[in-house]
């Protein structure tokens, strides 16, 4: 992995490095401590709501209403099974979960395959003027807000009989995530030592052989970053989903959660169990992969 890093973007590497700044060795003033205190407050502000979702997920309605911090009250683990099986007449949570996984996997596949192939083609091709032109296409594609696209995309999905298909939504998200993947991996591939590619060519590898054999494996870092970013984006996206996934059993987590308030749960705690179930998978992936995200974002990643 460290080899990967050195071939990738140095600025990204800089993010990861623990730099020794000169101010560090100075005596800390009152202002320093005050500033640090503010940072701690912000930290509590960011971490607490996430924690509180999990705390409230095992409480009953009365406890949720009377102790919204989530620290007091009896434990009700049954909330989870109730959320998992869905409200009476509602949709079981595992439908949402499976659909989210399906759409995320489809999106990651499409985004990575299309994105990396494109970046490599852009980096390596010698057609005059093509690369800047195509890069511009991808950047412009990034600027159009989803709101301009949703109605026709809905029509396209309908014509293809792909409404209510989480996989199809995933494919759409994958294509929409493509420009970002291109921008991230293009930066990374640009840094890839040309000598290495030439050596591969001399060795009888074709351009695409070099791509599969050398460039992809040695850029695992940025690619992992793209995968995780796509995953975060698709896991939380609902603007297209709410339109295209109307059938209850076809909804993803993000879409299903928007209707959660409208369902009839015995208690408020179940609502929070639902939120917790939706957050847990992505949270775990983030904590494992967080350094790739940091690196990927520093490479210029931005998702819709």
């Amino acid at each position: 992995m460290s080899a990967t890093l050195s071939t990738a973007e140095p600025a990204a590497a800089a993010v990861m490095a623990t730099k020794t700044r000169p101010s560090r060795n100075h005596r800390r003033s009152v202002w320093w401590w005050l500033g640090f205190l503010l940072l701690v407050v912000w930290t509590i502000g960011t971490i607490f709501p996430v924690l509180s979702i999990f705390l409230l997920s095992v409480r009953g309605t009365q406890d949720v209403y009377n102790h919204p911090l989530g620290f007091s009250g009896a434990l009700q683990w049954g909330n989870y099974s109730e959320a998992w099986n869905g409200a009476p007449g509602g949709t079981a949570f595992y439908h949402y979960l499976i659909n989210s996984v399906v759409s995320v996997v489809a999106a990651m596949l499409i985004a990575i395959v299309l994105g990396t192939v494109t970046s490599y083609a852009l980096v390596r091709n010698t057609s005059p003027g093509k690369t800047p032109l195509l890069l511009r296409v991808f950047v412009i594609a990034l600027v159009f807000p989803l709101v301009v696209l949703v109605i026709p995309i809905f029509g396209l999905l309908d014509q293809a009989a792909l409404l209510n298909s989480p996989a199809a939504i995933g494919v759409v998200y994958g294509v929409l995530a493509c420009p970002t993947v291109v921008l991230i991996t293009y930066s990374a591939f640009l840094e890839f030592p040309e000598e290495l590619i030439d050596a591969g060519n001399l060795d009888g590898l074709s351009e695409w052989g070099v791509f599969l054999r050398l460039v992809l494996p040695l850029n695992r870092g940025p690619i992992a970053a793209c995968l995780v970013l796509t995953m975060i984006f698709v896991w939380g996206e609902a603007q297209l989903g709410i339109i295209a996934l109307q059938q209850a059993q076809s909804k993803t987590l993000a879409v299903g959660l928007l209707g959660l308030q409208g369902q009839y749960f015995t208690n408020q705690g179940v609502l929070f169990s639902g939120l917790a179930l939706a957050t847990l998978p992505i949270l775990v992936v983030y904590l494992i992969m967080q350094k790739f995200i940091v690196r990927g974002l520093a490479l210029g990643g931005a998702l819709r």
């Binding site: 399906v102 596949l109 499409i110 792909l162 209510n164 298909s165 996989a167 199809a168 995933g170």
Partner: peptide, 21 residues
């Protein structure tokens, strides 16, 4: 292998897409 991987990917994606419908 690359081709196979791409093919598997595409097949997988289309199978998944078919699942929905």
């Amino acid at each position: 292998r690359g081709l196979a991987a791409t093919a598997v990917g595409l097949v997988l994606a289309s199978v998944l897409a078919a699942c929905g419908t």
